[in-house]
Amino acid sequence: MSQAAVAPSQSHVSEDVVLEAIDLVVEYRSGGKANRAVDGVSLTLRRGETLGLVGESGCGKSSTGRSLVQLPSPTGGEVTLMGEPLTGLSEKALRPLRRKLQLIFQDPISSLNPRRTAVEIVMEPLLIQGVAKKEARERAMATLAKVGVDEAMAERRPHQLSGGQCQRISIARAVVQDPEVLICDEPVSALDVSVQAQVLNLLEKMKDELGLSMVFISHDLAVVSNISDRVAVMYLGRIAEVAPSRALYASPRHHYTAMLLDSIPKPGTEREPSRATNELGGRPEVGCPFAPRCPAADDICRSAAPALVEVAPEHLVACHHPLG
């Protein structure tokens, strides 16, 4: 294992930033109390790049993804798409920009309209944009063919299709609008391994063919490492570490990333009992959010939240006592 950060092959990734989020804050109100799900997250997505967002439940990865699409708009912070601000826009002003930013959800069957056929589902966004019905149908059929849904299947409704086929239709509905950015929120988590592989390969293919940039949100580190150029690890609403995926897995710098990697089943190795500490304990009022579970935490960690700093090229970590 190399300690040096490994740069990913970036031939297809250009320097210009397609999507940028600065200091995102998302708060949900419950019982008059504000609950901060995302606490100052900044991200950049370059053209042609896949950025993975990984973390456990409640870390704010889905809230971050949704606030990028303004569903809903973040409580604080800014999102820009190709230099144009998305935050603070009216619903009407936002609509033409939304087309360029498409979302794919986890549950393939319930995220599709159960009363429409596959082709109708894919046509719908085009009709809303004012495309004539005949042309919309042709474009929808062509896109469905591209994602591997044949003509017979195109006339079926979601409940008559498998989870993998429904996820293909979700992908078709997203790419038919010719977007710039695809935001995938746990797109393969509900699928069996063999189907998961098909959908992941399809996402790679669509991204290449259409020159998309992608934010890929998942709790599964192996899935994320396979598809992403760079990976951001989130913990309790903050980014703990961002790095090119190879570097992140080869030499994690944040103790939380190391704990996650350590917890993944590794067949064939004599396993040490997990070093993962109890999941108990909410977010501390001050200091590093991971301090209560961290093996290296000391007084500094409990009093001041660490900033995200670059420790190697492209490798950023928010930790007072980074590994390595």
């Binding site: 896949t50 592989a197 990697l261």
Partner: peptide, 8 residues
Amino acid sequence: PLLENEPH
């Protein structure tokens, strides 16, 4: 998918 795979 395996952790040790190259991206893509």
